[in-house]
């Protein structure tokens, strides 16, 4: 479903990704763990198509098709979703206007009709209720005046509404208290499905107690250095990343 082959990327001439390879199958929840500066967030940005990074080598395949030449919106229309570590505030753009624009843009690219206003409002309300997002929040400008936890919940709302097939979650647990973490994790778990894959990027094992992964990849110095099952996350929590950093140096 998502296949990354020997991916190299740099920013302003500085190499960050140095040959990442991994595969995520339909229905799989894969976690990427790693120390700060290992290239986890860069990987998520390169998958989503952020311009600041230059891909010097490798491929990112979505259902067998290389998406590296596509614009971010084209990747989104193919079912890719990135939940941002730091969702941006956009003053003057109403949340509902944004949600509708996103949903209809994707439908249009897939050759579907625009959603009817009634169906749109019902869908948003249904998803918002589950995530504890109030009508008042939906009336505000996008993410403006939202707390860190509210912004993360808004990311999950967008994910649920857009129904992507591949969800990349970049440090979704950062800045969340225990209650907010549970709401967000429940939101993600509710979306787990046979035809949907997740790539969960996190620094801590904590999130993975709530979203239990099928696979855990450990990233260090721009490479995947080891891969295992859910138990690998616990091992890391106990021992730290030091051993793996030395693996990367070999």
């Amino acid at each position: 479903m998502l296949e990354i082959r020997n991916l190299h990327a740099e920013i302003e001439g500085k190499p960050i990704l140095k040959g990442v390879s991994l595969t995520v199958k339909p229905g799989e929840v894969a976690a990427i763990m790693g120390p700060n500066g290992s290239g986890k967030s860069t990987l998520s940005y390169v998958i989503a198509g952020k311009q600041d990074y230059e891909v010097t080598q490798g491929e990112v395949l979505l259902d067998g098709e290389d998406v590296l030449a596509l614009e971010p919106d084209e990747r989104a229309a193919k079912g890719l979703f990135l939940a941002f570590q730091y969702p941006l505030e956009i003053p003057g753009v109403a949340t509902m206007t944004f949600l509708k624009a996103a949903l209809n843009a994707q439908r249009k690219k897939r050759g579907e009709d625009e959603i009817s206003p009634g169906d749109f409002i019902r869908s948003v309300n249904r998803v918002a209720d589950g995530l504890g997002i109030s009508k008042e929040m939906l009336r505000r400008a996008l993410n403006v005046g939202f707390s860190g936890g509210e912004k993360k919940r808004m990311e999950i709302l967008q994910m649920a509404l857009l129904e992507p097939r591949i969800c990349v979650l970049d440090e979704t647990d950062s800045g969340l208290d225990i209650d907010a973490l549970r709401i967000v994790a429940d939101g993600v778990n509710a979306l787990r499905a046979k035809n949907r894959a997740f790539l969960v990027i996190t620094h801590y094992q904590r999130l993975l107690s709530h979203i239990v992964p099928d696979t855990v990849h450990v990233m260090a110095d721009g490479r995947i250095v080891t891969t295992g099952g859910a138990e690998l996350a616990h091992e890391l929590e106990a021992k730290g990343y030091a051993d793996f950093a030395s693996l990367a140096a070999q």
């Binding site: 952020k50 614009e71 919106d73 624009a101 690219k109």
Partner: peptide, 18 residues
């Protein structure tokens, strides 16, 4: 901001317009 909007599927011109 443009990247954020585009990552949600909104094409560049439309994201700029917003």
């Amino acid at each position: 901001l443009l990247f954020y909007l585009m990552a949600r599927g909104i094409p560049r011109r439309e994201a700029q317009a917003l």
